[in-house]
Nucleic acid binder design. Structure first.
Length: 273
DNA sequence: CGGTGGACCTGCTGGC
DNA sequence: TGCCAGCAGGTCCACC
């Protein structure tokens, strides 16, 4: 579900509820996530205080007192919701965190593709999940030259290269398609066919587009919500994603959808070559 | 080695 | 109305 703008929005909405709060109790109702949850380890977080909430790629990190970090990845359908303790539990609420404020944080995830684990702060970047993460989209080191080095060495379709978290960490299918619409590149063009100039255009488009998406609090189709259960608005500003059959926003063309791999690409056949 | 396709899950939608 | 196929924002792994 969530790509970087949604994860960033969720982090921002969590902070007012969690910063400075102490965890009273952690209850694991369903440990079978993508990686089985270590129930004992989560329970042992009782008594810890949340000192900071940060984001690495699409991972959400709670920095706790002591040397520990509580890490979440939301997969396709995960949500972190802050609710009053008397809010009825729902199906697929897998982890419940009781806070000293009286409120609760709940991890909800119908498809259970998400991840929740505890790490030592010092060993964070040795985690298998974080060891190979590429540049953050807002890192100034993300330049056209940086991208071009990967592109010229790869015969993959450009959309797939943008989804590779080892190169740029944070894009998913929506924003990969949108970036290619913004730069007038067809998503199925093989990466090594692109020019250095196009690589520079993509490098500029990535932070620009994601910045916009964050300002609109992310993209909500059906189920993405922030910690206050609020929807994003960026779905109203998408150029191509989920708009097949509709008019291109810049030319008279009609947006096309094609299954590539197991996921759809969307593009304007007139604008994107 | 790089690239592709399937697996992991549940829920929703659209076509018949 | 009901059923079933297909699809969904992510990641990982087996296979060629």
């Amino acid at each position: 579900m969530p790509e970087l703008p949604e994860v960033e929005t969720i982090c921002r909405s969590l902070r007012p509820h969690l910063l400075g709060r102490t965890i009273r109790r952690v209850r694991v109702l369903e440990p079978r996530l993508r990686v089985p949850v270590d129930i004992k380890e989560l329970r042992s977080l009782a008594g810890s205080r949340v000192d900071a909430i940060t984001r690495v790629a699409k991972y959400i990190l709670f920095n706790l007192t002591g040397d520990r970090v509580w890490l979440f990845h939301l997969g396709m359908s995960g949500k972190l919701l802050c609710v009053a303790a008397n809010t009825p539990r729902r199906k697929h609420d897998h982890i419940v965190v009781e806070l000293d404020s009286g409120a609760e944080l709940r991890y909800h995830d119908p498809r259970r593709f998400g991840l929740s684990l505890v790490a030592q702060k010092s060993g964070l970047h040795e985690l298998p999940q974080l060891r190979h993460v590429g540049l953050d989209p807002f890192d100034p080191a993300l330049t056209g030259d940086y991208l071009f080095r990967f592109m010229r060495a790869s015969a993959r379709r450009t959309r797939d290269l943008l989804l590779d978290q080892r190169i740029v960490a944070g894009l998913g299918n929506i924003y990969a398609n949108e970036i290619l619409a913004l730069t007038a590149i067809k998503p199925t063009t093989r990466a090594h066919r692109l020019t250095r100039k196009q690589a520079h255009a993509i490098a500029r488009a990535i932070p620009a587009l994601l910045g916009d998406a964050i300002r609109w609090c992310g993209t909500s189709f059906s189920d993405y919500r922030d910690a206050d259960d609020k929807s994003g608005e960026f779905q109203n500003h998408l150029r191509v994603y989920d708009r097949d059959g509709e008019r291109c926003r810049v030319c008279p063309g009609v947006i096309k959808r094609v299954a590539v791999g197991n996921r759809s690409v969307f593009y304007c056949p007139t604008c994107q070559k």
